[in-house]
């Protein structure tokens, strides 16, 4: 089964991509198009999200200090904005959001929240249901290596295919 186009444009879908360096990454679709590998694996993706939702929320987390600037939100709006992404970061997973929510075709994502203790982030008590190597779907990003680029500057543009 696949996510239909109409479903993708009408739902704010949680999806996950794995990378050997960065671990499991979470993305919020905000009604935008999904990468092909996610589109084709709707049931597995929903199950993965359900599994992750049930993980304990025991990680300390950090939120991106540049969010007000990226999104144009005031402090009160920012508190409402963060809730979901913080929940994911507390489970040990870096959480990204779609940057331009009024442009479904734009595939740019910014990092919202991430776990403070990186050493534990490669552990989760279930198998990943499908292979999604982020190196295959990142269209462009900063040329600075991840290890030298502060996380608040992490922005991905994902390929659909």
């Amino acid at each position: 089964m696949s996510y239909t186009v109409l479903e993708q444009y009408s739902r704010d879908i949680d999806y996950y991509i794995y990378n050997v360096t960065l671990g499991l990454l979470h993305f919020a679709s905000a009604g935008g198009r999904l990468p092909r590998v996610i589109e084709a694996n709707d049931i597995a993706n929903e199950q993965l999200h359900e599994n992750i939702s049930q993980l304990p929320s025991d990680f300390k987390y950090i939120t991106n200090p540049n969010l007000s600037e990226i999104l144009g939100l005031n402090q009160l709006q920012l508190e409402s904005y963060l809730t979901d992404f913080v929940e994911i970061a507390k489970k040990g997973i870096c959480s990204f959001d779609k940057t331009n929510i009024n442009n479904p075709e734009d595939q740019t994502y910014h990092l919202v929240a991430w776990p403070e203790n990186e050493s534990d982030k490669f552990w989760w008590p279930f198998d990943l249901p499908f292979q999604t190597n982020i190196n295959n779907i990142i269209l462009n990003r900063s040329k600075i290596p991840f290890s030298e680029n502060p996380k608040e500057n992490w922005t991905f543009t994902l390929k659909l295919d």
């Binding site: 704010d12 905000a30 939100l73 709006q77 409402s80 904005y81 979901d84 929510i101 009024n102």
Partner: peptide, 12 residues
Amino acid sequence: IRPRTKQPVPIC
């Protein structure tokens, strides 16, 4: 409104 974040969404 985008429920996840409560962000206002511009009319298309």
